[in-house]
């Protein structure tokens, strides 16, 4: 980019500096400034040479990781995600009760228009079936993580497969596969998910996971194909080809790893949308019919909706949990994108 002196200040018009001060500074330091600039430049070059000599260069990934650690967006996102994963792992230890157990002291107070609220033993009160709502929220982190991760991983795997084949072969294979993704992308995501769920004779947690996964396949496929096509013409692939590396290992060892970064960023962002899409399916009555399953999307979409007038907390808690976790994955994904491509930083 342009050097700081000639750079137009249009982008930040409000950061104007007192012109008199600038004038004064310039007059005082200009003649020596040039001298020093040359010196400084040489010193810096030497320093740079030194660092590369010592470390043998910094890999792209390590460089990106270093930027990631300094990015507040990424840190906030990563903290939320880490907390979420920890709660999910230690859910059985954290939850005060069994999430599937119906307590007599709660069920006896259940009526059509009242669900018991907080008490000392049940801090968040009861759910519509007389189970401990807090325990269900804590265990819900597990199921939500499960749905999000598997939907994303399956979508990622299939998308990478399609995208890699298209990007590696090009030509008519690419053409056919991309027309196929066009068709899938032409359908609204939720409508596609609904159609897929309708194909199963009985809905279950896996139909939801698969439907959400397949919706994301064309997105991953397009993304990977795009970055692989960009690689095909690049110098390192040409070099590999000139060295006589086989086509298969060029694709697998030279093109794919370099093209994967964008896909991994997308996967992080997809974790957030997958959780939201699963919640939408539950809201439409296409979720997991297992009443013992504690998953936030299910809790929000089914009980939260049905008992919103009676006890809105049944919707608020899972909704806030989903929003925070979705936000966490989004922030982390955005941070990763900025770290890999600093130009995208705004």
């Amino acid at each position: 980019m342009s050097d700081p002196i000639t750079r137009p200040t249009v982008g930040t018009p409000r950061e104007s500096v007192d012109p008199a001060a600038v004038e004064e500074k310039r007059e005082g330091t200009l003649p020596r400034g040039i001298d020093r600039l040359g010196e400084r430049k040489r010193a810096r070059l030497e320093q740079l040479a030194q660092t590369t000599a010592d470390k043998g260069g910094v890999s792209l990934v390590r460089d990106a990781f270093r930027r990631l650690r300094r990015n507040p967006t990424a840190i906030v996102g990563a903290s939320i995600v880490a907390l979420f994963v920890l709660v999910a792992i230690f859910a059985p230890l954290l939850a005060p009760h069994d999430p599937a157990q119906r307590f007599d002291e709660l069920t006896k107070n259940l009526t059509v228009d009242s669900i018991p609220g907080a008490s000392s033993e049940f801090p968040l009160g009861s759910d519509p079936l007389g189970r401990d709502f807090l325990s269900r929220m804590i265990h819900g982190s597990r199921q939500t993580l499960f749905v999000g991760v598997f939907a994303t991983l399956i979508g990622l795997a299939l998308g990478v497969l399609v995208g890699a084949i298209a990007g590696a072969f090009g030509g008519w294979v690419d053409n056919i596969l991309m027309r196929f993704t066009d068709v899938m992308l032409a359908l609204p995501a939720l409508l596609l998910a609904i159609s897929l769920v309708a194909m199963a004779s009985r809905s279950s947690q896996w139909t939801v996971i698969l439907a959400v996964a397949i919706v994301n396949v064309p997105i991953f496929a397009r993304l990977l194909r795009g970055s692989m096509l960009a690689q095909r013409e690049s110098d390192h692939v040409l070099a590999a080809r000139a060295l006589g590396v086989k086509q298969g290992s060029i694709v697998l060892r030279h093109m794919l790893p370099n093209a994967m970064t964008a896909v991994i960023v997308q996967a992080t962002l997809t974790l957030s949308t997958a959780i939201l899409e699963a919640a939408s399916l539950s809201f439409l009555g296409l979720g997991d019919p297992d009443i013992n399953r504690a998953e936030w999307g299910l809790m929000l979409g089914v009980d939260g909706q049905r008992y919103f007038e009676v006890r809105p907390e049944l919707a608020y808690f899972p909704a806030v949990a989903i929003i925070v976790v979705a936000l966490g994955f989004t922030l982390l994904g955005e941070g990763m994108r900025e770290a890999i491509d600093p130009k995208s930083r705004r």
Partner: peptide, 18 residues
């Protein structure tokens, strides 16, 4: 905008309605 894309819109609908 980050909040906007993270909120399940049916929940937002119920919230606004309420």
């Amino acid at each position: 905008t980050l909040l906007g894309i993270s909120i399940p819109i049916f929940f937002l609908g119920y919230l606004l309605k309420d």
